[in-house]
């Protein structure tokens, strides 16, 4: 809950973000409409599914922090304050995760719901059939946030070893934008590119939760995929934390 309250101080920024997400949602929706009008039924979506995907992907930008960042940790690593965090008895990783979930919940309310509602009003979007789908969708979003946290935590900690982390940040941004489904839906990526994209962790952040919402995927498989990647990334994060702590203890920060 602490994370939720901390982030709620940035209300103006969140409203501005929701506005920008809405504008981009509308622009991208038109492009997808043009494509699906030329190719009805492409990738198993109809036009309404494609529009829905478009607004959902904009809605995920906030909670999944698709453009990277969002962790106060990165700044603390850069300034060296993280050395203090690492030697505290409380788990740095667990604390960061709790904070990040609070952030995601806040941004979901502020930045995800408005663009989706406006998209629904302007273009009409698909609404899941029953409460079960809503529940599964919620679970899938949470799992997506965990994967997103896992990736961003590793990127933030990398600054312990790499002096100038801007390169890593921009690499991470490119991978995330492209392989999450933000740029185009992963299911229209041709051939091997599509296969690779669907297997990488970034798919868990946009494509998979959107497909759960649209009912276009086997839910057990989708959630398994997300939680699997979340477990792998968080385990890697734990190893990285331990290595970073050792480094701090030996070198004194």
């Amino acid at each position: 809950m602490y994370g939720f309250r901390r982030h709620s101080t940035y209300r103006a920024a969140a409203i501005a973000g929701a506005f920008t997400n809405t504008v981009f949602g509308i622009l991208r929706a038109y492009i997808l409409i043009a494509l699906w009008e030329a190719r009805p039924g492409l990738a198993g979506y109809d036009v309404a599914d494609a529009i829905t995907f478009c607004f959902l992907s904009q809605a995920f930008i906030g909670p999944m922090q698709v453009f990277g960042g969002g962790l106060g940790l990165a700044e603390r690593v850069r300034t060296g304050d993280a050395a203090v965090d690492l030697v505290r008895p409380a788990s740095l990783q667990f604390w960061s995760m709790a904070d990040d979930l609070g952030r995601a919940l806040y941004l979901f309310l502020m930045r995800s719901i408005p663009p989706t509602l406006i998209g629904a009003a302007l273009f009409g979007i698909v609404v899941p059939a029953g409460p079960l789908t809503w529940l599964l969708f919620a679970a899938s979003v949470v799992a997506g946030v965990l994967v997103s946290f896992g990736v961003r935590y590793l990127v933030a900690l990398s600054a312990c070893w790499i002096l100038d982390d801007r390169g890593i940040q921009s690499l991470s941004l490119v991978l995330c934008l492209f392989f999450s489904g933000m740029v185009v839906p992963l299911n229209i990526m041709p051939g091997w590119l599509g296969t690779v994209a669907n297997a990488l962790p970034w798919a868990a952040m946009v494509q998979v939760p959107a497909d759960v919402y649209l009912g276009k995927t086997d839910v057990a498989h989708a959630l398994g995929f997300q939680l699997g990647w979340a477990a792998v990334l968080i385990a890697l994060g734990a190893l990285a934390t331990r290595a970073a702590r050792r480094k701090v203890v030996i070198q004194g920060g």
């Binding site: 103006a12 920024a13 501005a16 506005f19 920008t20 504008v23």
Partner: peptide, 8 residues
């Protein structure tokens, strides 16, 4: 407080 509006 809301520079992101300009991004739109």
């Amino acid at each position: 407080d809301a520079p992101e509006v300009a991004n739109a």
